[in-house]
Design a protein around this nucleic acid. Structure first.
Length: 224
DNA sequence: GCGTGATCATGA
DNA sequence: TCATGATCACGC
């Protein structure tokens, strides 16, 4: 099977997503002509990239939505036996410098989360990767409450970054949003503000959605 | 090194 | 048991 072209409409995208719902990753890998890894230790992004392939995502590694002209971001999310997310969800890299005058309405995170196609995938490690099933897709935009929660966490975290306190931020800060390392390893460093605004070198950070938050999104879907 | 895709692995 | 902090792969 050749790589699907980008979907031309939201309806077309959702149709494709429903068409792969229930399939196993092994079946999807076979159609894509790629091998299914025994585990994801060395292929952490494999599931996401496989789903991108099937749905015709076009962005590659560019910092734009997966479905650029639809303004939709694709997120696979690993689900455990109890239907809850097994992992936090990476959203985007956090800016550590050049934040003068940055606002919620113009920030990268808000735009990334404006419209997300969630695709749950079985993620328990005792299920062989090839046997894991894709779940039902969910096209989501933040409710007013959800946006308020995200905004509050984002503003508090950005404030700390601006004040040179990035290295005192842990994953426990934030109700729904976390700031955590996002790097190749602990030796990858980038510039940030330190005490008194002096430049320091620190680990690159990313914004992640906590599992309680994504669990609520998914449960709202299954209840309605 | 940065941004894309994330999960791993161990200390609490 | 589970979330945090660390890490893996790839294109450029």
């Amino acid at each position: 099977m050749h790589k699907p072209s980008p979907p031309l409409s939201e309806d077309e995208l959702m149709l494709r997503a429903w068409q792969i719902a229930g399939a196993t990753l092994g079946e999807l890998a076979q159609e894509a002509g790629i091998a299914c890894p025994a585990d994801l230790r060395r292929d952490k992004g494999w599931v996401g990239q496989l789903l991108e392939w099937h749905l015709g995502a076009s962005a590659g590694s560019r910092p734009v939505p997966d479905f650029e002209h639809l303004g939709i971001e694709l997120k696979s999310i690993p689900i455990g036996y109890h239907g809850r997310p097994l992992e936090t969800t990476f959203v985007c890299v956090a800016p550590l410098i050049g934040l003068h005058g940055i606002t919620w309405d113009q920030c990268h995170l808000k735009h990334k989360l404006a419209r997300v196609l969630w695709l749950p995938v079985e993620g328990e490690r005792d299920i062989p990767v090839c046997d894991r099933q894709v779940g039902s897709p969910l096209l989501w935009s933040p409710s007013a409450d959800e946006e308020q929660q995200l905004r509050q966490d984002w503003e508090e975290l950005i404030d700390k970054i601006v004040l040179g306190e990035v290295e005192s931020i842990t994953a426990r800060h934030g109700e729904v949003l976390q700031l955590r390392p996002k790097a190749a390893n602990s030796k990858a460093l980038t510039e940030a503000y330190g005490n008194n605004g002096a430049p320091i070198k620190t680990l690159p950070r990313g914004f992640y959605l906590k599992t309680d938050f994504t669990a609520a999104i998914l449960s709202r879907h299954f209840q309605c």
